[in-house]
Amino acid sequence: MTVELTALTLAALLQYVQFVMYALPANIELGTGYTMSARDREPSRSMTDKTARLGRAFTNHFEGLILFAVAVIVTQLSGQNTPFTAVCATVYLFSRIVYIPAYALGWRPWRSIIWVVGFIATFLILAAALF
């Protein structure tokens, strides 16, 4: 398996880890009565800031993972894997791992900087496939 595909696989598995990191405290804080409901109304209890941030980081990773998956698939199918695209894929994965505590703990402006690093790494993979 290429470095890019390995990074994509690990990034997808990271999404599962993020789900657990968010879902466990959310179920405790909101109660399973709410979390298992259709959620047609706002919860009667609120989550802590940290749990809410973990939820937003989880959602944010879905958004970034889509672009990263496209970048890796394009690179893979076109046979344009290079050491450069491998480094970019590794940087993306590392940035997503570091982004979780950065967001959960409210590291400003580092959270945004870490996000930009992963976003640029994905962009560079796509650009490398075109040029």
Score class of each variant (00 low, 15 high):
Val117Ala: 09
Val116Gly: 06
Ile120Glu: 02
Phe131Thr: 14
Phe94Leu: 15
Glu63Lys: 09
Trp110Pro: 02
Phe62Arg: 05
Val17Trp: 06
Leu10Ala: 09
Ala129Ser: 15
Tyr16Glu: 03
Trp107Arg: 08
Ala23His: 07
Tyr99Asp: 06
Gly55Pro: 04
Ile66Ala: 14
Phe19Gly: 06
Leu54Gly: 01
Ala121His: 03
Glu42Cys: 00
Val87Ser: 03
Thr82Asn: 12
Ala102Asn: 04
Met21Asp: 05
Phe94Ala: 15
Val17Asn: 03
Thr32Gln: 14
Thr90Cys: 13
Gln15Ser: 11
Pro101Phe: 03
Thr75Val: 13
Ala69Ile: 00
Trp115Gly: 05
Val87Ala: 12
Asn60Ala: 09
Leu14Glu: 07
Val17Ile: 13
Thr122Val: 12
Thr59Cys: 03
Thr32Lys: 14
Ala57Gln: 01
Ala57Gly: 10
Val17Thr: 11
Tyr103Trp: 05
Thr59Arg: 12
Glu63Pro: 08
Thr9Asp: 02
Phe19Gln: 00
Ile120Met: 11
Ala89Pro: 00
Val74Phe: 12
Arg53Gln: 11
Ala71Ser: 08
Phe94Ser: 12
Tyr99Glu: 06
Glu29Gly: 03
Leu30Thr: 08
Thr2His: 01
Pro25His: 11
Val74Leu: 14
Tyr103Gly: 00
Phe131Asp: 13
Phe84Trp: 13
Ala104Leu: 06
Arg96Tyr: 05
Arg41Gln: 10
Ser112Val: 07
Ile125Arg: 07
Ile125Asn: 04
Asn27Val: 05
Pro109Asn: 12
Leu30Val: 09
Asn81Lys: 12
Thr75Asn: 14
Leu13Arg: 01
Val72Ser: 03
Phe119Asp: 01
Gly106Trp: 10
Ala86Ile: 00
Thr6Gln: 05
Thr35Arg: 02
Ile73Cys: 12
Phe62Lys: 06
Ala23Glu: 04
Val17Asp: 01
Thr90Ile: 13
Tyr22Arg: 04
Glu42Asp: 13
Ala102Leu: 11
Phe58Met: 06
Leu67Val: 13
Ala102Cys: 12
Thr6Lys: 04
Asn81Tyr: 11
Met47Lys: 12
Tyr103Met: 04
Thr90Asp: 09
Ala129Gln: 08
Arg56Cys: 06
His61Cys: 04
Pro109Asp: 10
Cys88Ile: 07
Ile66Ser: 11
Arg108Phe: 13
Ala121Cys: 08
Asn81His: 15
